[in-house]
Design a protein around this nucleic acid. Sequence first.
DNA 1: GTTAAAATGATAAATAACACTCATTAAATG
DNA 2: CATTTAATGAGTGTTATTTATCATTTTAAC
Lengths: 144, 144
Amino acid sequence: MVDDKSYSSGAFAENRPRSKRRTRQRSVIQRMLLEANRPLSPHDILEAAQAKAPGLGIATVYRTIHTMMTEGTLVTVDIPGEAPRYETAGKEHHHHFQCRECDDIFDIQGCPPDIQKLTPKGFRLEGHQVVLYGVCPPCTGMPT
Amino acid sequence: MVDDKSYSSGAFAENRPRSKRRTRQRSVIQRMLLEANRPLSPHDILEAAQAKAPGLGIATVYRTIHTMMTEGTLVTVDIPGEAPRYETAGKEHHHHFQCRECDDIFDIQGCPPDIQKLTPKGFRLEGHQVVLYGVCPPCTGMPT
DNA sequence: GTTAAAATGATAAATAACACTCATTAAATG
DNA sequence: CATTTAATGAGTGTTATTTATCATTTTAAC
């Protein structure tokens, strides 16, 4: 998993790398992430946010991602063979569905039971991830 | 993808060689993949094979991977956030365990029951992948 | 409004995985 | 053995993703 190295070098890690200013770009990016309700790639974010923040650059997207990650308000969503997406932190444990048509990722709730039983002897289980593959409603021609 | 039809496909799937010469390098790489019994990265393959094939270059590893993929004797194993590994084809349906200490991937048998129950309405399920995370026996200090 | 500095946008640079090039090596065949 | 030509190794090129640089803009506190 992605591990952002911390900044706790001294006794007091008082230097929180928070955003100090509320800019239009940052607000728009954060709103897009909240409203999407599914993991977005940096490019997804750029495209969605540019409608409300003309001229937005990709660097600002990456900077905002980094800021929100260190703030703890954003988490990485890694899907096999894919570049990382990001979604807002704080959701309860869930998994993801990737559409083979549009490649978009969707949150799914629930969790397979007895996943611990899959763990072979001698292995210590600490976490798991399930990815479902198929076709999403829009790509099957169904209404949203 | 390269598609070479210059061979008459025999009755048996194993008898459709795409490589024309049996070289030391290729033999060693294939043996490493068979003996590893777990997915290997190109770099893993390089390191393992160099012991038996001195001077082996990374290009040959990639070429052999490509050859075996088109032969159908090798399949990709994609783990979230990781570069692809490769394992020999023909294994029955299984999933993987990644050790958080050494990052190695291990095959695990079995499959969570009722996985289609996780699929939300309107989605068509076509496949799934489960990745377990934790610590492998060697990294817990247990004997192999 | 003024002002200091944080944030931005454009772009260069770093990273990583992998493919391509080509002179040389070495299998397979006779 | 000699021949032919696929395969190799070393290096270069490519593509995609992400980070660093820096002049300029913009926020937030006065």
